[in-house]
């Protein structure tokens, strides 16, 4: 009875917004296996592509593959896909801040007199 009353009360308070405790989702081993295999294939791909001369695009392809791998690790191994909105927002805000810092720094350097330092 006490427990029921407690739950009812809590529901009343938190219902309109995000619940304070997120229902935990146990990710299945099959997902881990598929993601792990994909990561290994991408590693093989990026190593193989580095042997082909693509000029500037060697760097573009290698970094694009690295970004895909990072996204897979974050979403599945680190459970962000299954996490609460709070966790998702935290991760997104962190990466956004990081991109702002990198962009500002690069903007500064790229607009300087290259070649005359």
């Amino acid at each position: 009875m006490d427990q029921q009353a407690h739950e009812h009360h809590e529901h009343h308070i938190f219902e309109p917004s995000e619940p304070t405790h997120h229902a935990e989702h146990i990710v299945s081993p099959r997902v881990y296996l598929v993601v792990g295999t994909t990561l290994l294939i991408l590693t093989g791909t990026t190593a193989a592509v580095s042997y082909v001369d693509l000029g500037t695009f060697n760097a573009v392809v290698a970094l694009a593959i690295a970004c895909i791998k990072m996204t897979l690790v974050i979403l599945f191994f680190m459970h962000v896909k299954y996490s609460s909105k709070l966790t998702k927002l935290t991760v997104a805000a962190g990466f956004f801040t990081f991109l702002v810092l990198i962009t500002m720094t690069m903007t500064d350097y790229i607009s300087r007199a290259w070649g005359r330092w």
């Binding site: 590693t43 990026t46 190593a47 580095s50 042997y51 082909v52 001369d53 693509l54 000029g55 060697n58 760097a59 290698a62 970094l63 593959i65 690295a66 791998k69 990072m70 690790v73 974050i74 191994f77 680190m78 459970h79």
Partner: peptide
């Protein structure tokens, strides 16, 4: 265990970027 997992995966991600930057992208330049 879960938080250690997060740390371990993060360290993995750092290497995912170190690998192309240090080893791969300059091979044909």
């Amino acid at each position: 265990i879960e938080n250690f997992g997060l740390y371990w995966h993060f360290v993995d991600i750092v290497w995912i970027f170190l690998f192309p930057l240090l080893y791969l992208i300059s091979r044909h330049q």
